[in-house]
């Protein structure tokens, strides 16, 4: 028995290591590529030790096809979508989780159902409507359609956090003469700060990574970085190093958020999954 153990854990570690490598290696490879010259990229066998260059980054930041304006577009759209999502989601989730009102079950189901809508079904009417009112290629148009997937998701995720608070909290606060609104503000919201942070992160990530809405409803003025990356590859077919540098830059914010908020993200995924929310 004891003799088998080290071998067993070694085998386990090996399997886990392979899993880890499969998920991480493509990204590491991309990172390495972004520092290569285009000649090194196409070397066979692949070169592991090469003279790193910052030319690719210089090109995608300052060059003719700079993606800086696109990063700015992404930032504006994602931030405003996140802001409005949280603005509407937090109060609604609180009502859904804690208060009694007519047709509560039905309204909960409605929110859940809106989350199931396939995006392609929404984009056609949005395209037609925004075209009529001149809303194509505007930040407000894109922000509006981002609410369609982020708001139901955020409501359900927040509901699960509100549900964790004992009911006595509100009762004590009401007896302490706080009233409903101040009970929410002083007693309840501080206790779901973690949940608000997690939900904000998720909403922001989803908005940042969105592609289909952005490619149809965006344009020359509003072109998020996901669309820019896509156009990049169509134009610069074989310039992989530049593509890799652009991708690294575009994904830097989400990777950083992912690493820093790692623990919270796992909790958010689990909460969402167990309680029944979450498209992603």
């Amino acid at each position: 028995m004891t003799g088998r153990k080290p071998f067993r854990s070694l085998a386990l570690a090996a399997v886990a290591g392979v899993g880890l490598a499969v998920w991480v290696f493509p990204v590491i490879w991309g990172l390495l590529t972004s520092f290569k010259t285009e000649r090194d990229v196409l070397a066979y066998p692949p070169v592991w030790f090469f003279k790193p260059t910052l030319d690719n980054y210089r090109e995608v930041i300052f060059g003719a096809s700079s993606i800086m304006p696109n990063l700015w577009s992404s930032l504006v759209v994602s931030t405003s979508a996140t802001f409005f999502t949280m603005l509407f989601a937090i109060p609604a989730a609180y009502a859904l989780a804690r208060l009694k009102y007519p047709a509560k079950r039905a309204s909960g189901f409605y929110v859940l159902a809106t989350q199931m809508l396939p995006p392609v079904g929404l984009i056609i009417p949005y395209y037609l409507a925004l075209q009529k009112v001149g809303g194509l290629d505007t930040y407000s148009g894109l922000t509006l359609i981002y609410l369609t997937f982020s708001l139901p998701f955020a409501i359900w995720l927040m509901v699960s956090y509100f549900e964790d608070i004992p009911f006595e909290m509100e009762e004590a606060a009401l007896l302490d003469r706080a009233g409903r609104l101040r009970t929410l503000w002083y007693v309840i919201l501080p206790q779901v700060r973690g949940g608000i942070a997690v939900t904000t992160i998720f909403v922001f990530l989803n908005a940042w990574n969105e592609f289909m809405f952005a490619v149809v409803l965006g344009g020359n003025r509003v072109r998020p970085v996901t669309v820019a990356m896509f156009n990049f590859i169509s134009v610069e077919q074989t310039q992989w190093a530049k593509v890799a540098a652009g991708a690294m830059l575009a994904m830097l914010p989400v990777i950083l958020i992912g690493l820093f908020a790692q623990r919270h993200i796992v909790k958010g995924l689990t909460v969402g999954a167990v309680k029944g929310g979450g498209r992603r």
Partner: peptide
């Protein structure tokens, strides 16, 4: 460590993932 590794693909934009695979992972020869 494994949890961190697992977060990585999830946070990436699908369009970037698609581009990555098309070029660096699945391209013929290289």
């Amino acid at each position: 460590l494994l949890r961190v590794a697992a977060i990585l693909p999830i946070v990436l934009a699908p369009v970037v993932v698609g581009l990555f695979w098309r070029t660096l992972v699945l391209a013929p020869d290289f």
